[in-house]
Design a protein around this nucleic acid. Structure first.
Lengths: 355, 355
DNA sequence: ACTGTAATAATTACCGATAACTATAAATCA
DNA sequence: TGATTTATAGTTATCGGTAATTATTACAGT
């Protein structure tokens, strides 16, 4: 039931003042080596643990970074978080992970809570529901560094880390075309979210550059940001729908791996061969992409690297003197991982890069 | 560049003292409603945000819980974390997620860091490397509530939440036997880790109770706690090894879904039918279990529920008056999810329960 | 008019640490 | 020897709140 030892305890026992002890521990030059040694010895013996809260109050720094993600139990975000941590922990920062569950209201509550506990910065990916970013502006106005990643707001002036979704989509669709596909369907996400818009544009441009006409009936919109099981079911439905029309696709580019899993399942139950009759490419390179049969080609976003970048941007900003810092925009090029679902004569490529 | 407003700013503007403002905000009975209203109005207008660090210093409570997991980007742990958060956030606690990467040294550093930032409690799953638990005792000695889950230490006197691994294994193996398997292999984890020991015992007892002799050659040990891709490869190797002997199994119970994925891949490439010739059951009910072909039967551990329990145990402990609290041990029964890999005439069961 | 008692608000100490400013002694110099 | 460094450590204010204690009113009762 012993309570924690403080500097006062040590000072009293040593017959010196608190500040002497404090300075001894901080290796202040004006403290004799004899005193320093005495202090350090006693500190060890009394098992003294500095109270960071007191230091935080004094210095105005909490050494805590708030991380807001729509959901932490998705591979994508978990991996980004790990990437952030790798970078910032080296400089003594801890992370508080918060989940918005895609809800604007929760997101705002979280922001308030984080500001209240005096985080030194916030790294966030915005909830899909969110269309107004005034709450994020609030963070900036309080002089708290804000880094956005992946799902960044439209008009927020701050540093960001995004994946080059346009390129990812362009490369994926180009690859399908090279494999001989001429009627490529696209399962796209909600259009107000930039990443899905970019992927759509990549898809459209790839078609255009290869002189393939766009068939609007082959483009299906879906809310892709929920429970994996639900998206998978949706993928099945959408695929069945696609194959009920008279112009059936010979390729599918899905903005979500999970929807692509549904496509594979739907086609398999229709006894349509993948990739001979229909090629499929997903997005995110989820672990299951390598597990499903046939292996799903997918676009790897280098999630951990995204996290690394976000962490680095944060450190840059806090370590630069106020006023002189300029926001930076980092764009990370994704990599197309080719598996059987889009390439018939391929040795299985399970291994993902930098997952 | 405006800096944060404090109680002092409000007090000055209102011509009252800081404590009056403080008490007005805390709805103290001895403050007139007029003053309270004036304070609250000004607080709104000046966009005052209470400084939690100051409160934490004063109260000795940080409202932060440290969570230590071997790795946060695994579905299992991510889901437990979500479960913890669901429960504790309601009472105003925030989580700091830390990853030990299975290394004892990192684990100890994390514990020191968490104690230093004055967390109100620690919820942890111990690293596989860890065999000496003195660092966890340190937490307890500092009167910081400690809850262990899943991988609990052997001799630590504290509250715990574990899955009934014995039952999970027993049920799985019994099911294999009911399906007609007589030679059931077991891919087990490191024996010094209790969960793997329990699963082994469940396996052995299920065999015994069905009068099936144990064949030591069918039990293979593997380090199951690393990168999914690596475990999968190991699963392939182990399975190939099993099928090189002259007594080949007709069933495999794997302590890891990922190793089981490897088994499936190995058997498929040998053109051995699953489940007609060999039935397979994994452990953890990873999302990919429902994706792989055939669907992998697996033991669902109700991870979110584990998290809920851990959070509840923590709250119980902090909310009980000191000295009167008794440690509790919660055991959660897992559920066997049956899919095609162990049951030939089954409608696919993709949906997991309470993932 | 004078004391007693609410009602309300101001003082003050404190949480644990840091840092600027002072103070004290011994040591050095003119 | 007296003045001035130098080395070392003590004082005190501060971070932003909370809470116990004390002070100031206003009003009631006699």
């Amino acid at each position: 039931m012993k309570k924690k030892t403080t500097l006062a305890d040590i000072a009293k026992k040593l017959g010196v003042t608190i500040s002497t002890v404090s300075r001894a521990l901080n290796d202040h030059p004006k403290i004799s080596t004899a005193t320093k040694k005495a202090v350090i010895d006693l500190v060890d013996k009394m098992n003294y643990q500095p109270n960071n809260i007191a230091t935080a109050l004094q210095s105005g720094k909490s050494n805590i970074i708030g991380v807001i993600v729509p959901t932490s139990d998705r591979q994508f975000f978990a991996s980004v978080i790990r990437g952030i941590e790798e970078v910032v922990r080296k400089e003594g920062y801890n992370l508080i992970i918060c989940q918005s569950d895609e809800q604007t209201v929760k997101e705002q509550k979280i922001i308030d809570a984080l500001l209240q506990i005096q985080v030194d910065g916030i790294i966030a990916s915005v909830a899909k529901e969110t269309t107004c970013y005034s709450y994020f502006d609030k963070i900036i106005h309080q002089n708290v560094p804000l880094i956005l990643f992946d799902r960044v707001g439209q008009n927020i002036d701050t540093s960001t880390v995004v994946s080059n979704d346009y390129k990812g989509a362009y490369d994926a669709v180009s690859h399908l075309i090279e494999q001989g596909c001429q009627h490529i369907a696209h399962i796209k996400g909600l259009k107000h979210i930039k990443i899905y818009q970019d992927r759509l544009n990549g898809y459209l441009d790839a078609l255009k550059h290869h002189q393939i006409p766009v068939d609007e009936d082959l483009i299906i919109e879906s809310d892709l940001i929920d429970d994996p099981d639900i998206i998978l079911e949706a993928g099945i439905k959408m695929t069945n729908h696609l194959f009920m029309t008279n112009h059936q696709p010979d390729g599918i580019f899905s903005s979500s791996d999970f929807a692509a899993f549904g496509s594979i399942e739907a086609l398999k139950s229709k006894c349509i061969n993948i990739p001979e009759e229909v090629s499929i490419i997903g997005y995110s390179n989820d672990f299951s992409s390598s597990i499903i049969d046939p292996g799903l080609s997918s676009v790897d976003q280098h999630t951990k690297k995204m996290g690394n970048s976000a962490g680095t941007l944060f450190l840059d900003q806090v370590n630069s003197s106020i006023g002189e810092y300029r926001y930076k925009q980092v764009v990370i090029d994704p990599t197309l991982i080719i598996r059987k679902s889009s390439s018939p004569n391929l040795i299985e490529n399970r291994k993902a890069i930098s997952r």
